Simulated assay, not measured.
Amino acid sequence: MGGHPTPQSLRVLVPNTEAKGNEPSPPEEKTDSPWRSERFANRVRARHATVHALLEAGHSRRSIGRQFRMTNRTVKSFADAAKPEDLFRGQWQHNRSSVLDEYKPYLDERWDEGCTNAWKLWEEIVPLGYRGSYGRVSAYLREKRTSPRPVTAQPPAPRMVTIWILSRPETLTETEQLRLKAVLANCPELDALTGHVRSFAQMLTERQGERLPQWLDAVRQDDLPSLHSLAAGIDRDRDAVIAGLTLPWNSGVVEGHVYRIEMLKRQMFGRAGFDLLRKRVLLAS
């Protein structure tokens, strides 16, 4: 008969798990599953195999969705996934953020130095601010011992890296310095940018404007287009920039008076004329 397949025809390819009764299930084997819960992983694997078996048998996605009470989007996800591992996401993933992430660069460095004792490393990171358990440290190191590929910490957010670069090096904690060092080691362009930023900050804070020409030459030698445009803008007004980096005077006082006058204008808007505004400005000086 033509038309849509019946539920009975769909069940032919579906394993009958109810017929097994209450037989005890065999213990779950340890696998390299990307899921935190092996029970969840097994359910997804079984459903993935069933959906693909029905599709190969000629059943439509809509009929499969009706049989298993799945939405079209869910059926599409199973059908489009070449293997069950393509479906994991969210809370079932291993690579979720944890309180240990901030200290993983330190652990990695100490691991590379030959220190593999979990208890000792836990004692070392507690004074650095770690508030997690020893078990979390032990699990991370155990994964490093057994994983076929090296386990590394998640990269920090770009905003955090920017804060580290713009901060004085001596104000960064030991953990922050290690994480920044790891980031710069993997990105030569960012390492060069950090050097130029800190060199300019030193000129600015220590009034060393005479170093500006050397700084501009050093910037042009690196392949950093964003800094090249900045250097070109500074070069067009080099004398003024050198004066600003050298002389102790600035326009801060003038800007303060301008801001105060604007505040008075907003307070008196629609209430009085220029004469009263003039008196208030002069009396407040």
Rank of each mutant, 00 (worst) to 15 (best):
I165F: 01
R159L: 15
A153D: 05
T175C: 09
E174M: 10
M160C: 05
W164L: 01
T146D: 15
I165S: 02
L172V: 05
R149T: 10
T171H: 13
T152Q: 13
W164N: 00
A153G: 14
R149V: 07
L178P: 00
E176T: 01
P169S: 11
P156Y: 05
I163A: 07
P169R: 11
L166R: 01
P155W: 05
T173V: 03
R149S: 04
Q154R: 12
P156Q: 04
Q154Y: 07
P156M: 10
T162N: 13
E174Q: 15
M160L: 15
I163V: 11
I163C: 02
M160K: 09
S147T: 03
R159Q: 14
M160F: 02
L172G: 08
Q177C: 07
S147C: 06
P150D: 10
S147Y: 05
R159V: 12
T162I: 06
S167Q: 10
I165Q: 04
L172M: 05
R159F: 12
T175H: 03
T152A: 14
L166C: 09
K144H: 07
I163E: 06
T152F: 13
Q154F: 09
E170F: 01
E170M: 13
L172K: 04
P156E: 10
T146N: 12
R145N: 08
R159D: 12
S167L: 08
S167W: 06
T152R: 14
A157W: 10
T171M: 09
P158F: 10
P169D: 05
Q154D: 11
T173D: 06
E174W: 00
W164E: 01
R159G: 13
I163L: 09
R145S: 12
R149F: 02
R145K: 15
T152I: 13
L178H: 00
V161Y: 00
T162L: 14
L166D: 12
T175G: 00
Q177G: 11
K144L: 07
P148Q: 08
R179Y: 01
P158D: 02
T171Q: 11
T162P: 02
T162M: 14
L166V: 02
